[in-house]
């Protein structure tokens, strides 16, 4: 990525998807904007010796995943300081366009499970790519993804049962 035009084309291909990943995983749009911008700045300031666009995209998602973890760490520290331990940190200000119901279901997954599910099901990433993006072992990804899928399926079934039992 040595010239502006190649960056521009890479940016247009990846930015909307990267933003969707960050917004859905952290649950609100404002910090997601900063994380997305920071991810591109880091990529440009210290470009890796990668020329394949798919690998570069995976690398970008890895940077963003690290920034998401930093964001969570910062939030945890701030929560400890302000002692708002009961607040739901990651979905405190949900994206208004996200249906409340879907947001609630997705928020019930652990943060890492949301990352795993998004990368696997929306980005269609291979286990090796997810492992690289989240700093996990490939074998662990398989197990964690299985658990996340099972948990989400249970939540969805539970939701179906609840909504079927509601009076009309």
């Amino acid at each position: 990525m040595t010239d502006e035009s190649s960056f521009e084309s890479f940016y247009h291909q990846t930015a909307p998807r990267l933003r969707a990943y960050v917004v859905r995983v952290i649950g609100h749009a404002a910090p997601a904007e900063d994380i997305v911008q920071d991810a591109y700045l880091r990529l440009l300031r210290a470009p890796p010796p990668i020329h394949d666009p798919d690998e570069l995209r995976a690398y970008l998602f890895r940077i963003a995943s690290n920034l998401i973890h930093d964001h969570w760490r910062r939030q945890r520290r701030e929560r400890e300081v302000s002692d708002h331990t009961t607040a739901a940190p990651n979905m405190a200000n949900p994206d208004p366009a996200l249906k409340v119901d879907m947001a609630r279901v997705f928020a019930q997954l652990k943060p890492q499970q949301r990352q795993l599910m998004w990368l696997a099901y929306v980005e269609g990433a291979e286990h090796s790519e997810i492992a690289a993006a989240l700093g996990l072992r490939q074998g662990s990804v398989r197990v964690l993804l299985h658990r996340a899928r099972h948990k989400l399926a249970s939540l969805l079934r539970q939701r179906e049962t609840t909504s079927a039992g509601e009076p009309r």
Partner: peptide, 17 residues
């Protein structure tokens, strides 16, 4: 079940600048 639901989630528009 999960694949279908994730597809729907991904298709939701994002309210952001």
């Amino acid at each position: 079940l999960v694949t279908q639901w994730m597809r729907e989630l991904a298709a939701l528009p994002i309210e952001a600048p």
